[in-house]
Simulated scan of single mutants.
Amino acid sequence: MLAAYNTALIGIADGTVDDVADRIVEPGFDRRSDGFLVLAGDGLPVGYGTAFGRGDRQVVGIQVWSQKPTVADWLFEQTLQRAREMGRERGHAEITVDSDVYRADESLRALLADHDFTASTTYQRMRIDHTGPVATPEEPADVVVRRGAFDDATRWTAHEIIIDSFRGQLGFVARPHEEWIEYLEATASFDWSQITLLEIDGRAVAIRICNNEFVETENCGSIGMLAVLDEFRGRGLAKFLLREAFARDAADGRAGTILNVDTDNSAPALGLYLSVGMNPTLVSDGWCRILPVN
């Protein structure tokens, strides 16, 4: 159902069975109360909605998929109600509810606007194609490259860099460390060898987390997260991590490398990705609303 919905909008399924499975086993998601599946009389699914509370549930993400307007309306109300319940359970007077929507999904954009949501940020899916071998870049001077995160100390370090780099960005809520570990280990497209850290003078200052999210659907590598601590930006660390990922994906026979970027955040991320040869292929918007829980 989700593949048919996405294909009608953007021409590709943009997801796999593993992607759906990853969502419903994600720490913090309760399948008994946080997901809604609507079946037609013949037993086939015609709608799906989820509500996912982040952190102390002061931020809740909702998603709705249905080509039937009446079903989409019902799912929207159910997910909003579940979001309110999460806020009340944690004692909040109000919560932030957000939802990521393809720019092409006019009906869902209208539904959000009708419920007083506003578009607050834009996400670009970036891609670079690999038509042959890609040169591996030289490691930056005075930088030590650490590959893999197989021990507790390295995983703590990786998590701390992510929190420090994304703190304050719209929609980002830091997970407790053990929940972060559980989330990654439950993700079918990830393993700990896909984390790379850069160190300067013994301090970890940058991270890249790759995954196999787009291997099945597009034979592409994926960079799920790229971050450099503020005081170490402008040294070419992000470009090195990008170009090295491109070289590794090309050597593995991948058709390209894909990542998603928030183009409205404080860092000039879009310009960085354009400068290394990536191009936008898909646009989504992040919508949000402050919602009283009563």
Rank of each mutant, 00 (worst) to 15 (best):
D19I: 02
A269G: 02
F150C: 07
F117H: 08
P268I: 08
P280S: 13
D14H: 09
S266R: 15
R31F: 00
D252A: 15
L270R: 13
D98G: 14
I290R: 15
R146K: 06
N294I: 00
S193R: 12
R155M: 14
A8W: 00
V283H: 02
L242K: 03
V283S: 12
V101I: 13
A204V: 10
Y5E: 11
A93H: 10
L170D: 08
A247V: 12
E139L: 14
I62N: 04
G11N: 06
D230I: 04
A186L: 07
F214I: 04
G286S: 10
E244Q: 13
A245F: 03
T96F: 01
M126Q: 05
R248I: 14
D249S: 14
A267W: 01
A149K: 02
R235I: 03
V293N: 04
D56Q: 08
L198D: 07
L198T: 05
T70L: 12
P268K: 13
I200A: 10
A83S: 14
S66G: 09
Y102A: 15
A245S: 14
W74S: 15
T281L: 04
A206S: 13
T70E: 15
L226H: 02
E213C: 01
A93M: 13
D105F: 03
R82M: 12
F52H: 07
E178N: 11
V215S: 13
L170Y: 03
I207W: 00
L2N: 06
Y102M: 15
I200H: 05
V46A: 08
G55E: 05
P292Y: 04
T131M: 06
N265L: 09
M1E: 04
V215T: 09
R147K: 12
T157I: 13
T96K: 08
V276H: 02
W65N: 14
V143S: 12
M1G: 05
L259Y: 01
V205C: 12
C288S: 11
R167T: 12
W180A: 11
R203Y: 00
M86F: 15
R88C: 07
I128N: 02
G41C: 07
V173S: 08
A3P: 00
A250P: 00
I181E: 12
R82D: 11
F117P: 06
V228C: 10
L9T: 05
N211A: 13
S99C: 15
V97L: 14
T122L: 06
E178K: 12
S284D: 03
S99H: 04
Q169F: 03
E216A: 14
E179M: 13
H115L: 09
E77T: 14
R235S: 06
G11K: 05
N212T: 07
A206N: 09
T7C: 06
R208N: 05
E182G: 12
M1N: 03
R127L: 08
L274Y: 01
A247S: 12
E139G: 03
G224S: 10
V46E: 09
V145I: 08
V101R: 07
D129M: 05
